[in-house]
Design a protein around this nucleic acid. Structure first.
Lengths: 341, 341
DNA sequence: CAAAACGCTGAACACGTGTTCATTTGTTAA
DNA sequence: TTAACAAATGAACACGTGTTCAGCGTTTTG
């Protein structure tokens, strides 16, 4: 098949020579632009096939001043929700014909150099799944016409779009569920140094509880975990029990905390749903398992990813449209820890 | 700071003009190659800083015929071990100054077009964490001097390196642990259509059990799950109990299966370690949690990632060195389901 | 002191594409 | 038959780098 012994890969020049046409026509065929006669197209395609020709994306990007790459900033993939979000983004990015440039970032400082690297690759867009995009850097992106989208966070940065699960809707669903099942003493569990979305979820929940008349102002019990994740939730439960407190219903900022809190309570002799109800955020696989059967708020990762990409493409088209803030509806998945009736 | 009103980003040409030198010297400074006088270097750096100059990686890659990208093929990130492996790879890739081009792949067909895309970006290397690299495509990579490394798999493809956890060592550790705790009736649990590494782990285990005289040839009980993951393990346990079988010790091909099997046995009234012992593969966060406290084989993700990159760089240097196959030592993490004594 | 060596610099080329512009060819309308 | 027009094509330029080569001034060497 490939009978060129050179290890160097074939260029459009080579294809043109073999097909007996000009390089411009080859380019026209592969970039699907401009007119080219049926006959010529076929000759070119056959020559390309014979030589195993593939467009050089670096040269293409250099010329177009834009690569078909999309930069994705992630953090803490050990959190199952994070990794499922990344999975959804990857899937949608590939479906749209882009390639994902993924970087893991630990502190805000790293985020800055990361985004800068993205610009050096002339990415078509940047997706920030965690952390706050530094305002001045974003301005730089806007200047280079690079769209930036943040996930699960709202901020007032001009020309930067945000896609976020509907935390107010989640709060409503949970409040209704608690009321329906007769819970009266209700707590909110969150990590001390929570993310923006964690804090927002708590704020929305407090607000709804007051609106629904379940709690008085400032009456919602806050339980704070000193470390994040499963162990944080577990230790919080232990301290909670040691202080002799009790609750009817607990709403948790994420699934890890919820699982940990439930296990912590179990270690102290309390179980759900017999002794109390508990609802978590992020419908991770673990929450569905036999040991937990946790009632949770489900975030629609696929829809989120879709909206993210449509935002990117819209702003790639016209960089100066108004800031777009999308709220993605959530679902309440009812399992054992806060059952149907 | 940036007083150029053009949205176009500054090029080396602009820097050279501002610093009053030639563009070649600018290139020399930023590629850290060749000699350049201290004084000139400082002038250039200051001008670059003033213009916010950043090297264009597309142009750089085009010229060097190699980008500082590394293609990573992943699959099923919902498996916590997979995502932790990706996390380790990302971390090491960035530490070495590369950028990760991540693609999720579902079937072998996708893998082919994916790797082809990687070559179009002139990546410095390809890491395949899942699936079997198609031989002819790999040949193409070799021809273009693109190193390919596979993880948790061995194959006899010339010029392709493999990094794999030491499954024989894992089998030995588990066998010893079972013997030490007096287990005599032992089973191996795996998914029916398991991955290469799953199959290899089972084969090594069987081999070691015979060598150690624990089982006779063909005597090791195989339990197969019809679906993968947690639910597969759980259903396998139900069927196992329904058939009235019993065991002392169970070794599982991965953590998800192990958790599922344990929960399935519990639903049938059997628990570990009182009624039987169980050991899993992949020391995922979940296995450490209160509800499981699973004894597992721990794979050293960081070390794996390090070896992967050193393989890539070695073969990038000289494409024709012998195939390198690395076995990464594993550890036995002892918890409740197969306790110390 | 002449010659050789060395450090530094700029001009010019190559990398592989997309795109513009002028030119040629083939078709339709007047 | 001619003019007008649309479709197809190739030459040439631009994108932003790395690198080679020759030239220059300065220092070392014999």
């Amino acid at each position: 098949m490939t009978n060129s012994r050179r290890s160097r890969s074939a260029s459009a020049e080579d294809v043109a020579k073999l097909a007996g046409v000009s390089r411009a026509s080859v380019s026209r065929v592969f970039s699907d632009q401009g007119n080219v006669a049926r006959e010529t197209r076929e000759k070119i395609l056959q020559a390309a096939n014979e030589l195993g020709y593939q467009v050089n994306f670096l040269a293409q990007g250099l010329n177009r001043k834009r690569s078909q790459l999309i930069g994705v900033v992630v953090a803490r993939l050990s959190d199952p929700f994070r990794s499922s979000l990344l999975e959804g983004l990857l899937s949608e990015i590939q479906r749209k014909g882009y390639q994902a440039l993924v970087t893991e970032v630990r502190d805000a400082n790293e985020l800055e150099v990361t985004i800068r690297r993205f610009t050096q690759f002339r990415v078509s867009g940047v997706v920030v799944t965690s952390g706050q995009p530094p305002a001045d850097l974003v301005k730089e992106c806007v200047q280079h016409n690079i769209p930036v989208v943040g996930i699960n966070r709202h901020m007032d940065i001009p020309y930067v779009d945000f896609v976020c699960s509907d935390n107010k809707m989640a709060a409503l669903l949970v409040a209704e569920q608690f009321v329906r099942s007769g819970c009266s003493s209700i707590a909110w569990l969150n990590y001390r140094e929570s993310t923006w979305s964690g804090i927002n979820r708590g704020e929305m929940f407090r607000q709804v509880m007051v609106e629904q008349g379940v709690c008085d102002e400032g009456d919602l019990l806050h339980v704070t975990a000193d470390i994040d994740g499963y162990e944080g939730g577990r230790l919080a439960a232990h301290r909670f029990c040691a202080q002799g407190k009790t609750v009817d219903g607990v709403f948790c900022a994420n699934a890890q905390l919820a699982c940990g809190f439930l296990d912590g309570m179990r270690e102290n002799g309390f179980d759900a749903p017999t002794d109390f109800h508990i609802i978590g955020f992020d419908n991770t696989p673990q929450t569905a398992q036999y040991s937990y059967r946790l009632t949770t708020i489900h975030q629609d990762v696929e829809e989120t990813a879709k909206r993210v990409l449509s935002c990117l493409e819209a702003r790639g088209q016209d960089p100066h449209i108004d800031q777009c803030i999308e709220e993605i509806p959530v679902k309440l998945v009812i399992r054992n820890t806060s059952p149907s009736f």
